[in-house]
């Protein structure tokens, strides 16, 4: 497939969520309506850079372009119980503090390399428990959102709504193919 076409068409694929940001962005508020989570515009930016670090833009769009940060916030807000939501908020706070401490600036202001270093440590579980718990939630929803995005499902790993067949003995090569 021609991946350039995909990049050109990326405006079509925003994680499938129709989330119109308000015209005048107030920095103090998140761009989507959340019922349980108290998320600021700054937090949303942080989430954007975090999902972009988890799934970066390569020759295909990454997490931020696909809106997976907003998707993650919405899923935590709607699907998770109060306990998880509290843990999420506490972990988000912890993550911000950890960034300040280790990077010396906010996660958003940090260079991509610094961000990667921090996420690498958290991903390996080398961070306070609440931060790791927060990160796992973000990563889970980011992966789900990515694999279930219009881009992936129609272009990169095509989901067939109407297969029209069942081959019970489908020959495959076991080695991963590039």
């Amino acid at each position: 497939m021609n991946r350039r076409t995909v990049v050109k068409g990326l405006l079509l694929f925003t994680g499938g969520l129709v989330l119109a940001p308000s015209c005048v962005m107030e920095t103090s508020k998140a761009s989507i309506r959340l019922r349980n989570l108290d998320i600021s515009g700054e937090d949303e930016k942080l989430m954007g850079e975090l999902v972009e670090t988890i799934l970066p833009t390569t020759d295909t769009p990454g997490g931020k372009t696909l809106g997976l940060h907003r998707f993650t916030l919405k899923m935590v807000d709607d699907l998770r119980g109060e306990k998880d939501q509290k843990a999420f908020m506490a972990g988000l706070d912890g993550f911000k503090k950890l960034a300040k401490k280790q990077v010396g600036s906010s996660f958003v202001e940090a260079s991509p390399q610094k961000r990667q270093e921090l996420v690498s440590a958290v991903n390996a579980g080398k961070a306070p428990e609440d931060v790791v718990a927060f990160y796992r939630m973000v990563k889970d929803h980011t992966i789900t959102g990515y694999l279930n995005s219009e881009l992936v499902m129609t272009k990169l790993r095509v989901y067939e709504l109407v297969p029209g067949r069942y081959n019970a003995y489908f020959p495959v090569k076991t080695k991963q193919q590039s």
């Binding site: 670090t53 988890i54 970066p56 991903n123 992936v152 990169l156 495959v172 080695k175």
Partner: peptide, 18 residues
């Protein structure tokens, strides 16, 4: 394999193996 992150994770997700 979803243990990693970044470019590697993305590659894993887009190139699953049996």
């Amino acid at each position: 394999d979803t243990s990693g992150f970044g470019v590697d994770l993305k590659k894993q997700l887009l190139n699953p193996s049996w």
